[in-house]
Amino acid sequence: MKIAPKNVVSLTYDLYVDQDGTETLVESATQEQPLTFLFGAGQMLPKFEENLSTLSTGDAYDFQLSAADAYGEYDDEAVANLPKEMFDGTDVPEIGSILPLQDNNGNRFQGQVVSVAEDAIIVDLNHPMAGQELHFKGNILNVRPATEEELSHGHAHGADGHHAH
Rank of each mutant, 00 (worst) to 15 (best):
Q64M: 14
P34N: 11
G21K: 03
A60H: 14
G89T: 10
M86T: 03
E32W: 01
A70I: 11
K84T: 04
D59E: 13
V92A: 07
M86Q: 08
M86R: 04
E32P: 00
F37E: 09
M86D: 12
T54G: 14
A67M: 06
L25M: 10
Q31M: 11
Y74G: 01
T24W: 00
L101W: 09
M86I: 03
A41P: 03
D76C: 00
G89D: 08
T30W: 04
I95V: 15
G89H: 07
G96P: 05
L38Q: 10
L65C: 09
E27S: 14
D75M: 02
D59W: 05
T90V: 13
G96Y: 09
G72L: 07
D103G: 06
T90E: 14
E27D: 15
Q31Y: 08
D76L: 02
D62R: 13
D75T: 01
P93Q: 11
P83A: 12
E94S: 15
F39P: 02
T24L: 08
P93S: 11
G58A: 10
T54F: 12
T24K: 13
D76A: 11
T22E: 14
G40M: 11
P93F: 09
A68I: 12
A29S: 13
L45W: 04
N51A: 14
L52M: 10
E49S: 06
A80V: 13
L38W: 11
S53K: 14
T36C: 07
Q33G: 01
L82W: 01
L65V: 09
A70T: 07
E85I: 12
G58T: 09
Q31W: 02
G96R: 12
E27P: 00
V26Q: 05
A68V: 14
E94I: 01
T36H: 04
Q19M: 08
L99F: 10
M44D: 03
A29M: 01
L99R: 06
T30H: 06
E73Q: 12
P83S: 09
K84A: 14
L99D: 09
F63K: 09
E77V: 00
A80R: 04
A29W: 01
F63S: 09
L38K: 10
Y71A: 03
L99V: 06
A78S: 11
G72D: 08
V92Q: 02
I98Q: 14
G89Y: 09
L65K: 08
S28T: 15
D91A: 15
N51Q: 15
S97K: 13
L45V: 10
E50T: 13
V26G: 02
L25P: 02
L38M: 13
T54D: 13
D75I: 00
F48L: 15
M44G: 04
V79K: 04
S28L: 00
S66P: 07
Q64G: 10
P34K: 11
Q19K: 11
E85F: 11
E77Q: 09
I95C: 08
A80P: 01
D59A: 14
I98H: 05
T90Q: 14
E77W: 02
Y61S: 08
N81M: 05
Q43S: 15
Q31H: 06
E85K: 12
E32Q: 14
I95Q: 15
T54I: 07
A68Y: 06
I98R: 13
V92E: 04
V92F: 05
E50F: 14
D91Y: 00
E32H: 05
A68E: 15
A78D: 11
E27H: 04
T54E: 14
N81H: 05
